[in-house]
Every structure is written in C-alpha cells, then in structure tokens.
Design a protein around this nucleic acid. Structure first.
Length: 883
RNA sequence: GCGCGGUUAGCUCAGUGGUAGAGCACUACCUUGACACGGUAGGGGUCAGAGGUUCGAAACCUCUACCGCGCACCA
C-alpha cells in the first residue's frame, strides 16, 4: 500500500525523478509478480525475448509498451497478470558479437581459442555486457514479472530443447541428410529459408561460348550471371521441345575452363525464353541445377570454399580468389580466350543472409532437417479463429507460408547455442541427450536459435504456472517474425500439448496475436544501425520522459501499417504530460479532493442540499467521458491503440481542459460554497477517471497524480477502471444548451478576432436569444468570451454596423465601433456562405429519391438544417440592411 | 508472376454510405488568476486517376497508375 502524499505539486513535471521513484516502489511492492495460486482470472503475455546482445530500439519500445498497456489494463480489470520476460541467446548474432569483441580487444580469433575456451568467453562476455536491454525496459516502465525472467540457455530450458529434438527424431520428423541448403559464407553456417532475403542486384549477364565437341569451331552460347562457377559445370541443358537445340541433346560440349567434355541434356525446367535457352548446369552451386543434375546423373563438383573463395587448382588464375573477385577475373579470362560472346547489364534477385548481409551460396551439405509437425492443425486453428490475428490480414500471409512449407534446416555450424544431441562412432549415429559412452563423439553443430524459441510460450513456465496461465492471452510481436516464431510456436503448442487438457483450445500458445507496425524513419527507410537513423530510446526518455515517449509513440502507431517516426511526435507526448500535470495542479490549488469523487450521483441525489447540483458543463463533460470510455473499450477490443491514445488526448485536452475547466472557473471562483463544491467534485470525478484511463499508457505520471492529489488509496495500478456516469433524460436538454453556449462563445470569439480586438482586451457583447435557462449562464459565457459585459436581451437593438453572428442560441453581437464597409464585406461573405449551404440542403430535399429512400433521421437532419440556414440567412440579411 | 497493404491539408495520420477531421507546421492576436511544453481565432484538401453501384461515395465494386511488404522466379 502506498500512502497518498498531499504534497503541493511543483510548477513543472519532472519525469526524471518521478519515473524511477515509482518504478522502484512498484518493484519493492512486488506489484508485477504473478501468483499462480490466485483465484482471479488469468491474463498472460510472454515477452518476445530480446537478444542478449541487444540494446533497446524503438521497435522494442513500441512492442513492449503495447504489452505493458495490456498488462496494466488487465491488472485494473482485476485479472491475475503474468507478463513473462526473458532473453534469447541468439546463436549466430551473439557468437559474431563476441568474436568481434575478442578480436578488437584481445586480437584473438574463435578458432585460436577452440570451442571450450571460446564458449567460456561467451559466458564471461554475457555476464559483463549482456542483458542491458532488460535494464532499459525497466526504464520504460515495463511491468513484467522480473522474478520469472527466463533465458533460452537456462539449464532446464536447454534440456527441454534437447528433449524435443530427441523426441522429434524418434518420431522421424527430424532427419539428417545431404541436401542443398543456404550457406552463409560470412558466418560460415547453414541457414533456414526464412533467413534468406532476396534483394535485386545489378550485375552482368555473360554469354559464354561452349564449343560443340564433334563440330570443332561451332559454339553454343550460354547465358550466365556466375562465370566464376563454370569450373563446376557438369553439363548444359536445353528444353526438350526446343527445336533449335534438339539435335544436340545427347552430344557433348567443351566446358571452357578447365577444358573438359560435358553432356547436353534436355530438361523441362529450362526456360526457353531466357538468354539463349541454354543453361549451364552447376549442380554444386545452384538449387535448380542440382535438381537437374540429379535427374540426369551429372557429377557434382564443388569449387567454393566455405568462406566463399574459389577452390580450383586447375585454374590457377582463379584459385583462391574471393567469389566476387573471381567473377570479374573469370569474365576477363574468357574474353581473352575468345569464349565470351558478350556481357550485358542485368538485374536479378540474389539471396542475402539476413544476419550477415552477404549473398548466400546454395551449397550441398549434410545438415539436420525438421519436417514440421501439425501444419494442417496450425492452419486450422487460425482459420477457425481459435487464434485470432490482429490485424486480420496476416492470416493470409500465414496461410500462404504454411501451404508452401518446406522442411526446416535446423543445424548451424556455430558453437554458441544448444548442441545437437547426436553422437557418432564408426559410422553409427545415436540421438540422445547423454553420451552413449566411450568413443562416441557429439555432433559439432548447434541448433537454430528459433528451434529453442518455438517452445517459449510454455517452456518458460513451470507446471503450476502453466496450469494457471497457459494458453497465454495475447502475443505482441512484429510481423517480420510471423514465420520464424509465431507459426512455429503454434506448431510446438499443438505437438506437445502443454495445456491442462488435450483439447486443442487448451494447447494453442496464445488466443490473440497482435502484429505491431514497423517503425521507419521520416524518409520511410527501415531503422538500422548502419544507416544511423535509429534514435536511442534512452535519449528520448531523458528528453521527454518514458511516459512521453510511450504516449507519443502509441498515438501514431497504426494497426497494420508502417510508422513514420518523427521526434516531434514524442515531443507531443511530453507536452501532453505537461498539460495533464498543469490541469491537475490547477485542481490541487483549490483544496483537497472531494470524498464523493467516485460517485457523483451522490451530488445529484443530495436531496439534502438541492443547490449542490451538477452544472450543465459538468453534465456535458461527464457525457463526453462516457463516450470516451466506450470508444476506449472498443479500441482495446480491436487492438487499436492509436485510437485509444487519440481519444484520451482529445478528451483531456479539448473536452476537459479547454471547455470544462474554463467554464467551471465561474463556479470555482464563486463565493457560493455549494457551487464551488459541485464544480470541484465534478472535476475530481473526471480527473480520477482520466488518470485511470490513461494509466496503462502513462503509468508514472498517473501514479504520481493519483498519489499527490489523493484520488484513491493504494496504487493506481490496481484501481478499478472508471464506470460510466448514469445520465438522465433531462441531461440531454442540458447538453443541447451547452452545445449552443459553446457555439455562441466560438462565434463571439470569432467576431472579436475579425474586429481585431487584442486577446488581452475585454470586449462588450450582446446576446439576442429566446432560449430559456440562459440567465444563470451569463457570467460563464462572459468569462469564456473574455467580455467586459454581456448584455442578454432578446430585443437588443444594435447600432449600425455592429458585428453579428447567428448560432443555435440566437445572435451574438460585438458592441464596438467598426468600419462599416469592412463589416458589410464580412456580412456579404457570410451570407454567400450560408446561401451556398442552403442550396445544397434544398437540392437534397427537393430530390424525391432522397426524401423517399434516405433514413428518416438523415432527412430530418437536413430539414432541420434547412430551417436553421434559412433563419440564419434571414437574420444576416436584416443585419446587412441595417448597415 | 501470385498474394497483402497503402495513396485524404505542406508533413504525420484518423475517418467503412449521409455537413471532409486531428496534431505538427503556417498566419494574426495574447505572458489573462493550471499550463508559452500554453491560449484564442484563422488560412489551407476537385480524398491518386477513370468507370460503375446508389437518391447520395473519401468510404462499396471494377480497372489503371504509383509506393511498400511477403511468396515464387532469380541461367
């Protein structure tokens, strides 16, 4: 329990002291810790584990703010909340980072150290430099249960990963085989298909001449982008129906270098339109070529080393060269020998390693593969909406991937990671966790990091926790890992059924998946380290506060679209926090909060004190609060966080600050105690609702205000959400009156601005209105108009040239000496405008189809408008005539 | 090639059949008793284009253009 502190609010809000203070208290109070024995309904989220080497990016901020919002909202709704955090060991990434660090600081390479020593150094490095991101997430205000923090390399977790491997092997879903895989020559490991990204690359298409063996002097031209792999050609292929080359099939041609006879084969896979319609078949270095090679029993010659250099001693000019260097040299060699017909500029797609950003090499290699389990079921649970994707359109992307799914290459030639539990001796293989004994050597490879991540949704929980919190409620993640992680977690959940029963709905890993937007810079480029266009969120927190950053980001985070990031938007978040702070300060200047802040109906009901009624402005702001509450609820249901933020922003800034507080000043500064009390009570009620509704987005400032103003006992974190205020039928009339008053005020201010009366100068107004109930509101209208005097007289006679505007209430006049011609012009403009409006409405109403077929309320609305416009026009014309 | 988004004010974006909106930027006035990280008022849009459905389209349908993403191709 936190004691409320009625200290005076300082002039400016200082997030730098307030935010860490509250975060520490929340931690000290164990507020984020989940109780698996709780009787409350569960709400759970597993945090997508950031890499242990990672530092906080704006993407993390967005992601974790959303999770925090959901967790905090759920706590206020009396759910038992588990937000389970953790980190990922990120095999390749961490290994690369540590290697780089060792090289820079100690000049040591991984292979110099050897596997054991290197892994020791990784652990050392990890203790010293790893996990910074966790501290950064705390600075953001993330309410995760840090006592349950997990790591993919935790002993029990690692064991589970190995057990899953063994199990899937036994089920014959995991197998080892020699196949074409994606090879990353920089990281020197195999990759999965998902880790390869295609990029268009500019290069050349080389037309190479292959001499026909039995027709010396006659050549075939073969188009290729990769002349450096010619040495690995073991055939050329044409389409079986290609008449141009039909006679050559079965014959041999001379491979240019090293000169050797290779056969011409016919294969359906050949595109007759491409190049010359002849393909050089290089089975070792291309997936399609490999398949063709298999079909025609062509030998496989590998001419590349694992790090992407040419390995071909018989062509010494190329041997040892880097593959890209060799491409140029090979072209030159061919040209020098007269074997290059031409080279033309050409753009094609090249697969790049997602991690190393170098072109991958298709390579024949012995690797472990997984045949995915439960793919059909995984598709079904999404299609049947047992798992809902938000926004929905990701379902289609997911479906497309699953339908074209191919086996997953899960072994990595990396030391850092979960070592594959396979053992070899004399050509025998055993798959088990412990060594089978003397002479058995464990597989050197480790598992793809995602092979451990796919168990994250349940392997991070012990049995009791799982019983309470699995399946999790919502997963919040970026759409870029829908295949890497989301889909695979669904497979794992369905395969291993960690839920409380064997029913499908108890074993899906989550009920909802919210895919966040991707943050781009102002130019629309992806945030990246190399571009240096990614601001450090910690700098932003220092400048604008964590709450400012969170709110600013959430207000612009659309669903299913990219966000263009602009620091201005974070500044707005900070400004909003300041606004809230100041309007709270205003309240606090007028004494302690009312005891009936939670239930204003008490005020309405106080038959004991009839004068303690809610003002019409209070009714209006309460009605708008109701609308806001509804809109927010809908926003949470649909995962539209930008909408929620926007509604809160509008309500607080416009409805509450600009209108209600300004209007309520009449009563607050009034001598009549009951009026003052009523206004302050309404304020307290609304303020209390505001901070609670805002708390998930801006946890620190709202907790500070909750406490400083004494709005409730205990932490705001567990306060219940505000309920809607019960409005009566008569309140509708009051709202109408308020709408008229506000409209009149705006019209009056407009007159004043047009008459160029400075803002700080009080002006005299007159109001011609037959509206009842206005007498008591005169003072407030005058205040809002900054009027020296407001003459309320339905029959007020104004002098010629008096600026006038018509509103729902009647007419508002600015009593001032003006230039008649200017006022004439102004009125003429106004008349023209209203006439145009009137024409539009009348054309609608004379349209029989419209009147017959449009909904009645729409027609009615237009009739009303016609009447209003006509009246307005009449009055304006009268005013014009008097000039 | 297939699929998915998007195109609304100078900028960033709301707006899914009924009077085109917000914030920023801009202009004018203003340190007035919460706030200049502020207040008040204002200017600014043939809603990418064409066609269709409809009494009525920014919204629904079709096509086109451009931007982005995914998958496939990638000799």
């Amino acid at each position: 329990m936190i004691e409320s502190e009625m200290a005076e609010l300082s002039k400016t809000y200082d997030p730098r002291t307030v935010e860490p203070k509250w975060y520490q208290r929340w931690i000290d109070n164990h507020d984020f810790e989940a109780d698996a024995n709780s009787k409350k309904k569960p709400f759970s989220i597993v945090m997508p584990p950031p890499n242990i080497t990672g530092v906080l990016t704006l993407g993390h901020v967005l992601n974790n703010t959303i999770q925090d919002i959901l967790a905090r909202r759920a706590r206020m709704q009396s759910f038992e909340v588990l937000w389970l955090p953790g980190m990922d060991h990120a095999g390749i990434g961490t290994q690369t980072a540590v290697e780089r660090w060792l090289k820079k600081n100690e000049g040591v390479r991984r292979r110099d150290l050897g596997r054991e020593k290197f892994l020791e150094r990784v652990l050392e490095w990890q203790d010293k430099h790893g996990g910074i991101i966790i501290q950064q997430l705390k600075r953001l205000g993330a309410s995760a249960d840090w006592t349950r923090q997990r790591y993919t390399m935790d002993e029990s977790y690692a064991r589970a990963v190995a057990e899953v491997f063994v199990d899937l092997y036994k089920k014959k879903l995991i197998y080892r085989g020699r196949r074409m895989i994606n090879w990353d020559p920089a990281a020197q490991t195999a990759l999965s298909d998902e880790e390869v990204i295609n990029k268009p690359q500019r290069g050349n298409l080389y037309y190479v001449r292959y001499e026909i063996a039995d027709q010396p002097g006659k050549f075939l031209e073969v188009a290729t982008t990769r002349p450096e792999t010619i040495m690995a050609d073991t055939g050329v292929a044409v389409h079986p129906k290609d008449k141009r080359y039909a006679k050559l099939v079965g014959k041999d041609v001379w491979r240019p270098m090293p000169r050797e006879k290779i056969p011409v084969v016919a294969d359906d896979a050949i595109d007759r339109e491409f190049g010359t319609g002849i393909l050089k078949v290089t089975p070792a270095h291309d997936t399609l070529d490999f398949e063709i090679g298999q079909r025609h029993k062509l030998p496989v010659i590998d001419v590349l080393t694992p790090d992407g250099k040419i390995d071909c001693p018989s062509v010494p000019e190329l041997h040892g060269l880097d593959r890209f260097e060799a491409r140029k040299t090979a072209a030159e060699l061919l040209e020098a020998r007269g074997l290059l017909a031409k080279a033309e500029p050409y753009e094609n797609n090249v697969g790049f390693s997602d991690r190393s950003d170098v072109p991958i090499e298709p390579r024949l290699s012995e690797q472990w593969f997984l045949k995915y389990p439960k793919t059909k079921e995984a598709l079904a649970v999404v299609k049947r909406h047992l798992i809902r994707f938000w926004p929905k359109h990701w379902e289609k992307v997911y479906e497309q991937w699953i339908k074209n799914i191919r086996d997953w290459c899960i072994s990595r030639q990396v030391w850092w990671g979960h070592r594959i539990p396979a053992w070899y001796r004399n050509g025998q293989t055993k798959v088990q966790i412990k060594s089978p004994g003397e002479g058995w050597i464990q597989d050197n490879d480790t598992l793809d990091t995602w092979f451990s991540s796919w168990l994250w949704a349940y392997e991070t929980m012990d049995e009791k926790t799982r019983k309470k919190f699995y399946p999790t409620s919502t997963l919040v993640t970026g759409p870029d890992i829908i295949f890497f992680w989301v889909a695979r977690m669904i497979f794992a959940g369905l395969e291993y059924k960690p839920g409380k029963s064997k029913k499908t709905e108890d074993n899906i890993p989550f009920h909802n998946v919210f895919f966040t937007s991707i943050i781009r810079d102002k130019q629309g480029r992806k945030m990246s380290k190399s571009l240096g266009n990614s601001p450090d969120p910690l700098d932003l927190i220092d400048k604008y506060g964590a709450d400012g950053l969170r709110f600013g980001l959430m207000r612009i985070a659309p669903t299913g679209q990219d966000i263009r990031f602009d620091e201005k938007q974070i500044e707005e978040g900070r400004n909003f926090a300041t606004k809230l702070w100041n309007v709270s300060r205003f309240r606090q200047m007028h004494g302690p909060v009312s005891e009936w802040r939670d239930d204003l109906r008490v005020v309405q009901r106080t038959g004991q004190s009839p004068s303690l009624q809610l003002s019409i402005y209070a009714i209006e702001v309460l009605a708008r609060l109701n609308e806001t509450i509804d809109a927010i609820e809908k926003g949470y249901r649909e995962y539209e966080f930008n909408l929620i933020a926007q509604r809160l922003y509008d309500f607080i800034w416009s409805d509450y600050c600009d209108w209600f507080v300004e209007a309520a000043k009449t009563e607050i500064f009034s001598e009549v105690e009951s009026k003052k009390k009523s206004a302050l009570g309404a304020m307290d009620h609304v303020l209390s609702a505001i901070v609670r509704l805002l708390h998930p987005f801006m946890p620190h400032i709202t907790e500070e205000l909750w406490s400083l103003l004494g709005l409730g006992t205990g932490s705001i974190q567990f306060a219940s959400l505000p309920k809607k205020f019960a409005l009566k039928d008569v309140d509708l009339k009051k709202r109408k009156l308020v709408a008229g008053i506000y409209e009149t005020v705006q019209a009056g201010r407009n007159l004043r601005a047009q008459a160029r009366i400075p803002s700080n100068q009080k002006a005299k107004f007159a109001l011609r209105s037959k509206q009842s109930g206005l007498e008591s509101e005169q003072e407030t209208i005058a205040r809002l108009l900054n009027a020296s005097e407001l003459i309320a007289d339905p029959n007020f006679i104004a002098g010629a040239g008096t600026p006038i505007a018509t509103t729902a209430l009647g007419e508002i006049l600015l009593i001032v000496d003006v230039d008649l011609s200017a006022e004439r012009e102004r009125l003429d403009r106004e008349i023209a405008k209203v006439e145009a409006d009137l024409r539009v409405v009348e054309s609608k109403l004379t349209n029989k189809s419209f009147v017959d077929r449009a909904p009645r309320d729409v027609v009615e609305l237009n009739r009303q408008r016609q009447k209003n416009f006509a009246e307005q026009l009449e009055k304006l014309k009268q005013a014009r005539e008097r000039l």
